[in-house]
Design a protein around this nucleic acid. Sequence first.
DNA 1: CAATAGATCATCT
DNA 2: GATGATCTATTGC
Length: 199
Amino acid sequence: MSCEWEILPRAFYARPTVEVARELLGKVLVHRRCAGIILETEAYLGLNDKAAHASRGITPRTRVIFGEPGHAYVYFIYGMYHCLNLVAEPAGTPGCVLIRAIHPVAGLSGMRKRRPAARSMADLASGPGKLTLALGITAGQNGSDVTRGSLTVRRFREEPSLRILTTPRVGIRQCADWPLRFVVEDGCAILPSDESFYL
DNA sequence: CAATAGATCATCT
DNA sequence: GATGATCTATTGC
């Protein structure tokens, strides 16, 4: 199935965080049998970005953010949910991208089983907590290498041309006006909502 | 529709 | 001991 798509190499991630965040839009996030098109991301920078976990320096939790690019940073929040980030910048420089929404393209039955509350396809993985739940991503994936293994990001054979909206990040208080959230414009219409299209 | 409360715990002060 | 990069069910218009 999804194996025909090329996995993004580590060099893709070893760049400025904002660049990585923008270019992740339209790529395919794959975990085991499930996959979805990335529709929304947020950039979290280094020491000057008070909203970023990395702003407090290296702790047991933030270690991965300072490490090799192309790894997953997964953290647990609100006593209930996990959030998935991808580490950017060269090793030693902090920076990561929060994946906030995907549009499901494969493994629908598994996703629905893990998210019985979802009312529609668009609702299945349209949020940071929703998508980790739908894909079955937990703290066990923290630190895992997304250039190989069961959790990867891939590109279509043909790059889709996307209209990208830039807005402030949501759900934070510090640096709340920084334009570091990137959304695919009209993301719901990017792919058919006809379920027979999907795997 | 819009607003709100509740669930629940790792991490850092 | 407080806080939080959230989601859902429920309430009130």
